[in-house]
Nucleic acid binder design. Structure first.
Length: 536
RNA sequence: GCGCCCGUAGCUCAGCUGGAUAGAGCGUCGGUCUACGGAACCGAAGGUCAGAGGUUCGAAUCCUCUCGGGCGCGCCA
């Protein structure tokens, strides 16, 4: 693993030393040297590949260069570097002193609540839009995944020092909404839901919640139904630990003439033309396969037109970066959205379209097909009810957004108590318990005896957190946080096994280790939106 | 047909801007005089990293092709 962004002070200083030592050898490395935390204990506390990256520039064998690097580094670090060894093809393995570990731990505690935060350059004002499920039905598991991912990414970006604004786009406009209104009225009248309508149970409940639905105009009924669905979505998401700064209505965009405004902007720049009675956007000028209709021959705006207006609006609100989190079923839409964004004058990298792969459901090994129109689906609420918020979030977040998730509901229910999330939470609760029992105050500077390897390893695992967090944000990969925090929990278990705290000569130092561990576990779990209980 | 994503242990997945013996959870098998929290710990078995070429000192990782799976290709949203 690379430790290059937003490191703790101790790590940053160590890296600087490695860079300086490398620079002193002359020649420039072909990439920034890595400072890794090796898996294997006999590869040292940290390892660098700097020598191998200098072979071309220096024209010498990597192991020779590594030996020179070791000498320079020894001068740089003084007593902090206990020893180093050239290994393998040209790695330099470093073993750092107990003093260095203590110093580093002290830095963690000194950071206080800020531990884990980093400062990116530049810090960006980011708008992240996610979930944005159509208000024609409850949020289902796909939406749950999107919610968990978008929320965790937003948290990670904020931790990495960005100014994050969360947004939900409500598609309360167009034919599907009209169809919802018709469906509700049919239910209210006890009639058959029209072909292509929404047949789910929830439509019956909607009809019950709207007095006089049977006689209401579909137009008004639609809006009433949408309002109820949006409220329901908000409540489900809140329960899931997900909240938004802004809920933007598509209908509102039209009412505020935002669509016309976008057309004006595009027209002025010569990006549009009329053909077959429709208004087209020249998306092909920006890499799309074909131009796209934004206003139909009938005079109605397409969905794309709303989206263009929405993205122009986001730009005009002054965000450096606009992120949309979409389901895989919308990936065919990516190119044209990028094209439109650029046609509006945005930079290509000013918009990021992140595609979530789908959740494929099964139950007892049998594939379950979901259909919103038919009303057959598993909802976010179901998931929360069955396995709980923490287990559900962990389950959805431990995988990359780029891979399809197979969710077997029976298995998930069965295994919910086996979910690794409890292992991590348990590690947190255990640290809290030890801290309750301990009598000494934390003193991170003075271990009374040589550090145990397990305690040294735990300190290094803790030190990795800011870098891991920053990396997760930069790669838009919050699942890395899950991988990291599980490893941290395992490392803390080894410490617990090997190092008693209460009543030991090193109690004060170990209290400091426990404090830093608990804080780091809590920070990482918090990034995933998972609770960190003191007791369980 | 074209485009995007995926194919790593029995299962679910990490690792992918190239680095040292490919990892975890669950499951299986075998252990731990049982607690500063046993929802734990230790160990073992288990892998042609889908396949074939290529680039490189070095490829699960980059490139090309093939096979397999998912999704998408509207004047729907």
């Amino acid at each position: 693993m690379c430790l290059h962004r937003g490191m703790s002070d101790a790590l940053r200083d160590l890296r600087t030393s490695v860079d300086r030592a490398a620079a002193a050898l002359g020649g420039t490395p072909k990439a920034a040297p890595a400072l890794e935390r090796p898996r294997q204990a006999d590869h040292g506390d940290y390892a660098t590949n700097a020598a191998m990256l200098l072979t071309k520039a220096l024209g010498r064998p990597p192991r020779d260069i590594a030996a020179d690097l070791a000498a320079r580094l020894s001068a740089e670090l003084g007593p902090d570097l206990e020893r180093s060894a050239v290994a393998g093809p040209g790695f330099l393995n470093l073993v750092l002193s107990d003093g260095w570990h203590a110093e580093a731990l002290d830095g963690v505690l000194a950071a206080g609540e800020a531990w884990g935060r980093s400062t990116p350059s530049p810090s960006q004002k980011v708008n992240i839009e996610f979930v944005s499920a159509n208000p024609t039905g409850p949020i289902h598991v796909g939406g749950a995944r999107n919610a968990a991912y978008g929320d965790a990414l937003a948290r990670a970006l904020a931790l990495a020092g960005h100014d994050v604004h969360r947004e939900f786009y409500v598609n309360d406009f167009g034919s599907q909404i009209v169809m919802l209104g018709h469906s509700v009225r049919a239910r209210a009248r006890g009639e058959q839901v029209p072909a292509g309508g929404y047949r789910g149970e929830y439509v019956i409940r909607l009809a019950e919640q709207i007095p006089g639905a049977a006689e209401m105009e579909p137009e008004e009924l639609s809006q009433r139904a949408v309002a109820l669905m949006v409220d329901a979505a908000r409540a489900s998401l809140e329960r899931f630990g997900v909240s938004f700064d802004t809920w933007t209505s598509e209908k509102g965009l039209h009412e505020a003439e935002k669509v016309q405004h976008a057309f004006d902007v595009l027209g002025r720049q010569g990006r549009t033309y009329r053909s077959d009675g429709a208004l087209w956007l020249r998306t092909t000028e920006f890499g799309d396969d074909k131009d796209r209709v934004i206003e139909r021959a009938s005079g109605e705006h397409t969905y794309f037109a709303s989206d263009i207006a929405y993205h122009l609006d986001k730009r005009e609100r002054g965000f450096d970066l606009v992120i949309d989190v979409w389901g895989a079923d919308h990936h065919g839409y990516v190119r044209r959205m990028h094209a439109a964004f650029e046609a509006l004058g945005g930079a290509h990298d000013g918009l990021e379209l992140l595609i979530m792969q789908l959740v494929s459901l099964s139950e007892g090994g049998e594939q379950v097909r979901m259909s919103k129109r038919a009303g057959e689906f598993v909802t976010l609420d179901d998931l929360v009810e069955d396995i709980g918020v923490d287990a559900a979030r962990w389950y959805l977040l431990q995988r990359s957004h780029d891979t399809t998730i197979d969710l077997d509901l029976d298995l998930a229910k069965q295994q919910s108590t086996e979910n690794p999330v409890y292992y991590v939470q348990y590690a947190h609760a255990r640290m809290a318990a030890i801290l309750r029992e301990a009598t000494a105050d934390a003193d991170s500077r003075r271990p009374a005896e040589p550090l145990h390897p397990s305690e040294r390893a735990l300190v290094r695992a803790i030190l990795a957190w800011p870098g891991e967090a920053a990396e997760a944000a930069a790669r838009r990969a919050p699942h890395r946080v899950a991988t990291y925090v599980l490893e941290l929990a395992q490392t803390s278990a080894a410490f617990y096994r090997d190092c008693k705290v209460r009543g030991e000569p090193s109690e004060a130092f170990r209290v400091a280790v426990c404090l830093a561990t608990r804080r780091t576990l809590a920070s990482a779990l918090g990034t995933l939106g998972v609770s960190a209980p003191d007791e369980m």
